[in-house]
Design a protein around this nucleic acid. Sequence first.
DNA 1: GAGAAGTCTTGACAGTCGTCAAGAAAACGG
DNA 2: CCGTTTTCTTGACGACTGTCAAGACTTCTC
Lengths: 204, 204
Amino acid sequence: MTTATARRTPADKHDERRRALADSALRTLGELGYARASLREIANNSEFSHGVVHYYFHDKLDLIVYCVRQYKATCVHRYDGVVADATTPEGLVAAFADKLVETIVDEAPMHRLWYDLRSQSMFEESLREAVLQIDQTLEDMIWRVVGTYAELAGREPAMTPHVAYGLLDGLFQQALLGYLCDLEGVLDDLRAQVHRLMPVLLAP
Amino acid sequence: MTTATARRTPADKHDERRRALADSALRTLGELGYARASLREIANNSEFSHGVVHYYFHDKLDLIVYCVRQYKATCVHRYDGVVADATTPEGLVAAFADKLVETIVDEAPMHRLWYDLRSQSMFEESLREAVLQIDQTLEDMIWRVVGTYAELAGREPAMTPHVAYGLLDGLFQQALLGYLCDLEGVLDDLRAQVHRLMPVLLAP
DNA sequence: GAGAAGTCTTGACAGTCGTCAAGAAAACGG
DNA sequence: CCGTTTTCTTGACGACTGTCAAGACTTCTC
């Protein structure tokens, strides 16, 4: 009865419901993208009715930004284990590259949704604040990997966090598109590319 | 009367009209993006009526793919002059970087439209063929720059065309987003980043 | 200049969209 | 158990969408 988990205020329940709704919505958004995923379709692929969205979210933009924020909040810790377990620079690179490939296979819909949202933010000003914030967390995520890699290698990073993220994101996006287009070898290519790129990110 | 330009078949006129319509459409598409640019809005911002679109194009997708193809067809020759005029590796890099910055300022709407279309192709299979083709021409464009740079420097490229394009595209996309978000210094940053990256693309 | 072919306008069609309001249902507090 | 508050469903609204067809207009051909 009076366990710790029973200590839930109404506000907590409200938030919990928002999270559950966002989780459902993410499935549909990852499948259809930002523009083609209607609120009715999102609701149909969930346990909720289409009207309930406006009870928990102000409007469609509010829902979608919340969804992507929620996904990315956990996403940015994907490589924490890689960083924590690494003992050699080569081992870190290998684990990092493997994890990159793994997430393309496992979460391609989520990644394309992110790139969709980021592209839309180039047109829709109201998306830019959230996109810039998320982009920053991704940059930090990458920098934790590169920084640890530099430490293990006993060398200094030769690039800013911004550049390191830009370069890796370019390769990742390319691989994601190739994977979704069923091109052959894109995943192995990505792995090899990361192995080649990482040493370049460090000063000689 | 019987000048060379008067030698126009009806098919030529038809193509010319398609090009003119596409030119108008590109303005609206660059402003609103793929999803929010309706055929009526496109027609309103042109000298045509909304029905004429279906006389020259099969449907909306047909129009938009034609538009982006048309734009990119000229876009891929942007650096031809840079390549042709270059006499030293450093000069080539400087001219290339300047041109990259210039096109962000001058043609930001067109570039964001391209990234929009490429993102959409991750969801819409019918876009993928065109996107992959255009992406290949962009890769070739970049490789003409990198290849000439390698020749002038008397060294060998250390990356495949695919990787070189992926890396530069990542930086470019980042700078474009920053520019559209009115972030300070993104253009100078891009210039500096290209100066640093290009030597890395060559073998020691 | 009459007829034919090509070009374009207009208006309508069947859907879909985001949004909201009225009220049912459920959960809660005493 | 009743009254209140929160939660959710249902149905409707106006606006907007891509598409198309009927006909007007222009251009060309003989």
